[in-house]
Each structure stands twice: as structure tokens, then as C-alpha cells.
Design a protein around this nucleic acid. Structure first.
Lengths: 120, 120
DNA sequence: AGAAAATATGCCGATATGGGAATATGTCAA
DNA sequence: TTGACATATTCCCATATCGGCATATTTTCT
């Protein structure tokens, strides 16, 4: 079996850096496709394809008006990813304090050693 | 060009659900491969392959002891994903309050209507 | 009607994937 | 040394990917 389709969930859709760029750009306000093309300097078909993927997983929504399509990011769809990563917050916090403590212990020890050296 | 390799960054590595399961399992404490196999009910080669990917992107670390390999998740490597998603927190918060406000306005209106109906 | 503008879709090729099964590698113990 | 145990690697296959390019679709304007 190949890798899961990019349209299977937010995790897969968001793995592509260009798609993250698009979501960032569309977060503050809706934009027509042309604006994305101009801003990200990507070929228009490429942008349309990425938007299709994002649309399929619900990461963006469209509002069509005349010949333009205004896309906006649906932040809600990013929540699952955020929540999954949040589980690990406590762990990297703990790891950081451990590292910090160790560093402090070591600097204590080395200053003690230095002191001892100075003393001897 | 095909999709970026799963080993290119945490975003890609974490797109695979089994790998997320492994990271969850290994977060509280290090475990030998056999424990993962038993817990997740996956074929051993499959687990080893997933661990290889996770190792390549720094999402896990190993400690070898005899014929066993103890893996633990390196929560730090999940931080980039967490931070990227955090940017959107304000947006889904805003969207939620908007939805809430609209719901309140609508329930106000309907209760008023009801009241009016009762009155008339 | 016909052309231009904005966006979407189709086809191609190169490539990496994850699963399955078999096998390799490394380590301990009798 | 030989065998059992724990883990890693290899090979094969079916499939979805992204990029590039060409083209289709829809809408608006003259």
C-alpha cells in the first residue's frame, strides 16, 4: 500500500510546505486565487491543485463570485493537528528543565573544580 | 517531482497515523521495539521501518543495550509542528466566538418572536 | 458572437511510499 | 560452536504524488 493520500486528513495535507504557505496567507482574510499565485510566485495550475487538496480536507473554504474564487482558511481544521502536538508539550518542557538543570549542575561542578584548582 | 520523502521533516513523518501512535506510546518512557509491536499489534518489520523514519527526522532516539533497542520520543522535534499550528489558534478562537455570537443573536431573536407571538 | 480574464482539470513522468514476506545482522546462553 | 532471541534490512508491488504543460470551463466585456 502506498502512502495515504494527501486528501485523507489535515496531517497529510499539511505535510506539503506550499500548502502551509497558502494556509498562512489565507488565514487573515479571504483572497482570490490570483493573489496567491502572485504572492507565492507559483504557477497558477499548481495553486489550483493545492487548493483542491486543501478544500477536500476542509482546510479552506471558497466563495465564488463571478469569475473569481475567494478562498479562506478554515482554522478549525488545523485544530486536530494542534491538539495532537499539544500532548507532547509537557514532555519537551520537562526535557528542557532537565537539560537546564544538568547544565546548571555542570557549571556548578566546573566552577567548584576551578575554585579547587585555584585553591590548590 | 514526487511527494517529499517522509524523512524530510517532522510534518511528513508525522503524517502517518501509525507513527503518531508510536510517538504517543514512547512519550512517557523508553521502550524496547518488542513492546511497541505488542502494544500496537503491528508486524515487527513494519515497526522497525517506522522507527527508522522517526529516527531519521529526530523524532525518536535510541539506546542500545545488548540485543534490545530502547526507543524514546524526542518531544522537541514535534515543537515545529506545534508552533506552526499555534499561529492559527487566534483564528479558530475568533471563528468560534463569531459562531457563538450568531447563535446567541438568533436565539434572542427567536425568543423575542416567541414572546411576541405569545403577546399577540 | 467573439475575445479576454480567472480558475480548474487532464495527462505525463519520475519517484518514494507502506505492506508483506523473507532474510540478514547482532547478541546472549548452553 | 550452535541455537534462540531481538531487531534491522531487502525485495517486490500497487499506488498517489507533485511539477510542467496544455487545455477546458465559466464568466464578463465589447
Amino acid at each position: 500500500m502506498p502512502r495515504a493520500p494527501t486528501t485523507s486528513d489535515s496531517f497529510n495535507a499539511v505535510a506539503e510546505p506550499r500548502r502551509r504557505d497558502i494556509l498562512n496567507f489565507l488565514a487573515p482574510a479571504e483572497r482570490p486565487v490570483g493573489d496567491i499565485v502572485e504572492r507565492l510566485r507559483l504557477p497558477q495550475p499548481s495553486v489550483s491543485k493545492h487548493l483542491r487538496v486543501l478544500l477536500d480536507v476542509g482546510l479552506v473554504e471558497v466563495r465564488r463570485e463571478g469569475r473569481q474564487a475567494f478562498y479562506r482558511t478554515n482554522a478549525e481544521a488545523i485544530k486536530p493537528v494542534h491538539e495532537w502536538t499539544s500532548q507532547f508539550e509537557r514532555y519537551w518542557r520537562r526535557q528542557l528543565t532537565r537539560v537546564k538543570e544538568r547544565a546548571e549542575r555542570e557549571s556548578d561542578r566546573s566552577s567548584t573544580t576551578t575554585t579547587q584548582r585555584r585553591q590548590s
